[in-house]
Design a protein around this nucleic acid. Structure first.
Length: 334
DNA sequence: AATCCAGACAACCGCAAATCT
DNA sequence: TAGATTTGCGGTTGTCTGGAT
């Protein structure tokens, strides 16, 4: 007696998305906005489940997504927050971490962690196991929590070790991360400031994110518009072709934006990610897409857990600074 | 040139929480 | 209030690509 099924399981297409499917999805969302995902495959004729449509949009097609290499600054944030969120809660909160990097998706961050940062840290920790001073004693005041992440499976992590042994903190991160300053209060403020998706931190690279995403979609649209071949299979033949009156303005808008003009397409502007760190992400609340949008824009007070995390982060940075000072004379292995 | 292998990343799966009737 | 359903998240898998042999 709940909601009707979003889609029929029979005939659902899986695997990589085709440019045609992307176009259909983008054009539909451009017209109707994201949300109400169960209606997307029904109304577009896409042979995909609503879940797949949402994932495709969220992780790939959504405007504002920044693709490509992660900066040392971003790496620092990820490693830092992963050391906090990934080891202090039951699960690693990729969504919470992603909320501090509005231009990156949780999937991207997760992938980047698993393919790059995890190995980087493991390598460093392996070296550290040989050269590092004795581990802290149990009398240390820091909280020791069993790791539940894949990265840390089977061992207990100490926050200080995690951060102090972090090559990003001791090298690139130390000098590029705005939070890597000597004032713990400022560090906390900076972390809190990142709750705002529109907070500027002087990162010049951030300005390119929207354009790069627009560029991708523009290419997609261009490629699609050039194609004159009919759908290659029966299933695709059933797909309702997007109307030209949707595509033409869409294409011109994308070209306009990706061409360097800062004027944004209003409809897409409204759809820009609202990556305000959601207390829900920390508290386990599951928000819905069709929730009132202003809810995501509100900064709101910090949840108790967030407060605790930020306070602890500030305390740990103080300790980190002590450690960094102590280790400054030690040549880095990188 | 062909094959193998590892890295990168897109997509899927399962689960839990929220929502609806 | 119960049960069905949707939605979102984290973990995992599958596929593609580039480099090495």
């Amino acid at each position: 007696m709940g909601r009707p099924p979003c889609c029929d399981k029979v005939g659902i297409k899986k695997g990589p998305w085709t440019p045609e499917e992307d176009i259909i999805l983008v054009s539909y969302i451009q017209e109707h906005g994201p949300g109400n995902w169960r209606s997307v495959p029904i109304n577009t004729g896409l042979m995909r489940c609503s879940k797949s449509c949402r994932l495709r949009w969220t992780n790939y097609l959504r405007p504002g997504i920044r693709r490509g290499n992660f900066t040392p600054h971003e790496e620092g944030i990820i490693v830092h927050l992963q050391s906090l969120l990934g080891n202090s809660l039951v699960l690693c909160r990729w969504a919470a971490i992603a909320s501090y990097l509005p231009q990156r998706t949780d999937n991207d961050i997760k992938n980047y962690w698993n393919t790059h940062l995890k190995k980087k840290l493991q390598k460093h920790q392996a070296i550290g196991a040989i050269f590092a001073p004795p581990p802290p004693t149990e009398s240390s005041s820091s909280i020791v929590i069993p790791s539940t992440t894949t990265a840390g499976a089977g061992h207990v992590d100490h926050h200080h070790d995690m951060i102090a042994s972090n090559p990003l903190f001791s090298k690139d991160y130390k000098y590029s991360h705005p939070a890597a300053c000597s004032n713990p209060a400022e560090v906390t403020q900076q972390l809190i400031a990142r709750r705002s998706p529109f907070a500027t931190d002087g990162d010049s690279s951030s300005s390119s994110s929207y354009a790069s995403s627009m560029d991708n979609i523009s290419k997609l649209l261009n490629g699609f518009m050039k194609q004159s071949s009919p759908p290659q299979n029966d299933a695709a033949a059933d797909i309702k072709p997007p109307a030209a009156d949707i595509f033409n303005p869409l294409l011109s808008s994308f070209n306009h934006i990706s061409g360097g003009n800062t004027t944004t397409l209003p409809a897409f502007n409204d759809m820009l990610p609202t990556p305000t760190p959601q207390p829900a992400a920390l508290m386990g609340h599951r928000g819905y897409d069709d929730e009132p949008k202003q809810q995501h824009h509100q900064q709101g007070p910090l949840s108790p857990i967030e407060k605790w995390l930020f306070e602890e982060a500030a305390e740990q940075v103080v300790d980190l600074m002590d450690l960094s000072d102590a280790c400054c004379s030690v040549p880095m292995m990188f």
